[in-house]
Amino acid sequence: MSTLKRDARMAGLIYLALTLVAPFRLIYIPGALFVHGDPAATAHNIGTHELLFRLGIFGDLLTGVISLFLTFTLYHLFKGVDKKLAMLMFVLGFMDTPLYFFNTINDIGALLAVSGSDFLASFDPAQREGLAMLFLRMHGAAISCAEMFWGLWLFPLALLVIRSCFLPRFLGVWLILNGLAYLALCLSGVVFPQVEDTISNIAFPLQLGEVAFVLWLVIMGARPRGGAMPAPVGG
């Protein structure tokens, strides 16, 4: 196996790990524990399934770590195409890691509120439930803000894919659409929350661009077109 193909497969496997781990806290935990419009039921579920909720917190931490390794691996894969563009991709992609780590503070706050720690003894159960819901809402709002970087880093990545001679250009075009979808989700989540669900439904097919990119890297790897790498750009 060539070095290029091996590096592409490695990046694909790390990206696949990210796509498998990230939805645990982002999708599974809310679906399993949160009850829309019912802070008491949500707090009860978190308290009853504390280990599951803690695993969700750890899942966010793990996602941040995997994301860091992913951006470095993709930088290594694409630096020969355009070093400056690859560095831009790395910087924008790197922002995912601190955002995930900082956002776990909101979940920890929700867990402390639900557990009724001694320093919250002056709060009655309804107040603690409301406080827990506040932290959960802040976690969700932080995700909407993070979608700004989830979208932005895909643009330099897409250009690198298009300029490379070892990946199909349609993947780069799809990644651009994927990035636009994330930016639309960020805008709706922060500015127009009343249409967030509608935008999410429209954006979903576009967000499959990352899935297609991951599967191509894992299954097909990198296959140089014309038998040669492009001359490095950006020194």
Rank of each mutant, 00 (worst) to 15 (best):
F34E: 14
L208R: 03
A146Y: 09
L18P: 00
A146C: 06
A181F: 02
N103L: 05
Y100G: 04
L154V: 03
V35C: 10
W216V: 03
D60F: 12
M133S: 11
F58V: 07
G221P: 01
G130S: 05
F204W: 14
H49T: 03
L175I: 01
R223C: 07
A40M: 06
E210M: 05
F69L: 08
A158T: 04
W153M: 03
D118Q: 13
L62Q: 06
N103G: 07
T42H: 10
V161C: 09
K83W: 06
W150M: 01
T73Q: 14
P98M: 12
F166M: 08
G227N: 11
S188F: 00
I46L: 11
N45P: 02
A222E: 08
T198W: 13
H49W: 12
L61N: 07
W174H: 09
R128F: 04
R137V: 07
L92M: 14
D60I: 05
G109D: 11
G93M: 06
V21C: 08
G31R: 11
G37V: 00
L33I: 02
R6A: 13
Y100A: 08
Y100S: 05
G56Q: 08
T63E: 12
W153L: 00
R223K: 15
F155N: 00
G93H: 07
V195N: 07
A40P: 01
E129M: 02
L160G: 00
W153K: 03
C145I: 05
G31M: 12
T3S: 06
K83M: 04
K5W: 10
G56P: 02
T63K: 07
F170L: 13
V173E: 12
C165K: 14
L4T: 04
M10G: 03
G64S: 05
H44G: 00
R9L: 03
E147P: 00
A40K: 01
L157E: 05
A126Y: 12
S115Y: 10
F213E: 09
L183P: 02
T73L: 06
L18K: 05
E50L: 09
V81D: 07
A132Q: 00
F102D: 11
K83E: 14
P232I: 01
E50D: 14
R223V: 04
F135T: 01
Y182S: 05
V91D: 11
F53G: 00
S67C: 13
F149W: 14
A222H: 05
D96S: 13
A32F: 13
A158D: 11
G227D: 13
H76E: 12
L159N: 04
R137C: 10
F72T: 02
G12F: 00
L154F: 09
F123G: 05
L16D: 07
S2E: 13
